[in-house]
């Protein structure tokens, strides 16, 4: 499965468009991490735990999108976009979407 965030794959021709595919996941962080983060708020710096958490979540959203594309018979997803939104206190939705296509 080829993923790009441009409308084409350089050097390859799109044979068929299969429409929008999407994947999302909602993740909450646990209290322990929150407590550690609030301590880190005193000295500043990277919150490695959160970086990992969000990365994992984004990967999962991407994977769900890829699975949907595979189910539609695509071999590439073009113009992939990410969006993150906080829905409630302590939980975020990670969303990935793109256009599923068949390339030669």
């Amino acid at each position: 499965m080829i993923l790009t965030n441009i409308e084409v794959i350089p050097g390859k021709r799109v044979v068929r468009h299969l429409g929008l595919v999407q994947g999302s996941t909602v993740r909450a962080k646990h209290v322990g991490r929150d407590f550690l983060a609030s301590l880190k708020n005193i000295v500043g710096g990277e919150l490695t735990g959160y970086t990992e958490l969000l990365n994992e979540a984004r990967e999962e959203a991407t994977e769900r999108m890829v699975r949907q594309a595979q189910a539609a018979g695509a071999n590439a997803v073009l113009n992939v976009r990410f969006s993150t939104s906080s829905i409630t206190q302590g939980a975020a939705e990670l969303f990935a979407y793109g256009t599923a296509v068949v390339v030669e």
């Binding site: 708020n41 000295v43 500043g44 710096g45 990277e46 490695t48 969000l54």
Partner: peptide
């Protein structure tokens, strides 16, 4: 992708 979560200091 590349991402980082940063926090402010006090």
């Amino acid at each position: 992708c590349g991402s980082v979560v940063v926090s402010q200091d006090y």
